[in-house]
């Protein structure tokens, strides 16, 4: 069984965001980028567990991104993935999630794949599009908001759980498939120093953007995409209006008055 996991190199959750001069995205200057602490890291962990549980042949990690995104690939290699593929974009490219899906699908189509894992959404644009878009583009079923999966290799069936509004569904579906993970069964592992050193020597294939675009041409659907008009950061909050009080009852009275008359949310 071959497992592919797709990840994105995103700004660290604690990074201070500044708008780029284009007004269309963040200014990447001085921003710390990472793959950990996101849904993608959970997807990578689950991909590695699939390999351990059912003896998958290989786990390949793949990303679309500028040169710096190689760091995300090396991180997942140091978690234990075997090989990596980097579809390299220009540093200032701003790609629609459907465009990213087409680039990934074009390249994945040329690689062996039984299960393609993705995180629920990227931590930056939070689109959550790639999972089911890859399914459509690769002609595979896709399952999203998955919280647990166990493959049965003989029947080629995945036994899964998924989040639904108000509860959880236990369900089965065939694979090959694309699985979008809401949350993994285990905390992602932390790479050890020997594994970090080993990861430096693992195979990492670079795919030039033009090659990936050529591969994407034969895919279904139209190569149309959204374009960003603007990226807006709200003015920094000046902090909360503090309720002054002597007794809890006074705090409650004052707060309810503010919520009712000023904020108008009650």
């Amino acid at each position: 069984m071959d497992v592919i996991v797709c990840v994105k190199h995103v700004p660290d959750a604690e990074t201070r965001l500044r708008a780029a001069s284009s007004g269309k995205w963040i200014d990447p200057d001085g921003v710390k980028f990472t793959v950990n602490n996101t849904y993608d890291e959970a997807a990578a962990e689950e991909a590695l567990r699939l390999k351990e549980k059912c003896g998958a042949k290989s786990v390949r990690v793949i990303t679309v991104g500028p040169a710096r995104a190689e760091e995300a690939l090396r991180y997942v290699l140091s978690m234990g993935a075997d090989e990596a593929t980097h579809i390299e974009t220009p540093p200032d490219a701003q790609l629609d999630p459907l465009t990213i899906s087409r680039l990934l699908a074009g390249v994945i189509k040329t690689l062996p794949h039984d299960i393609v894992m993705v995180g629920k959404q990227a931590a930056d644009d939070e689109a959550g599009v790639v999972g089911s878009a890859l399914g459509a583009l690769l002609g595979l079923p896709s399952y999203a908001f998955v919280t647990e999966l166990n493959p049965d290799a003989t029947t080629k069936t995945l036994k899964m759980r998924r989040y639904v509004e108000g509860g959880e569904e236990h369900f089965n579906g065939p694979f090959p498939a694309v699985v979008s993970l809401l949350k993994g069964a285990a905390d992602p592992r932390t790479p050890t120093l020997p594994n970090i050193l080993k990861a430096r020597k693992k195979p990492l294939t670079k795919v030039p953007l033009a090659d990936a675009q050529a591969k994407a041409q034969a895919l279904p659907g139209a190569p149309v995409a959204g374009t960003v008009r603007s990226f807006v950061l709200p003015p920094p909050k000046t902090g909360a209006k503090m309720v002054e009080f002597q007794t809890p009852e006074e705090a409650a009275e004052k707060l309810v008055k503010l919520l009712r008359e000023e904020a108008k949310v009650l």
């Binding site: 089911s132 896709s142 639904v164």
Partner: peptide, 21 residues
């Protein structure tokens, strides 16, 4: 919702459209 967000990217590709969640 979980279903709406999962459905639309696939539908967008099937009808040659675009998507935003």
């Amino acid at each position: 919702t979980a279903m709406g967000r999962e459905l639309l990217p696939r539908l967008a590709i099937e009808v040659g459209g675009t998507v935003a969640p």
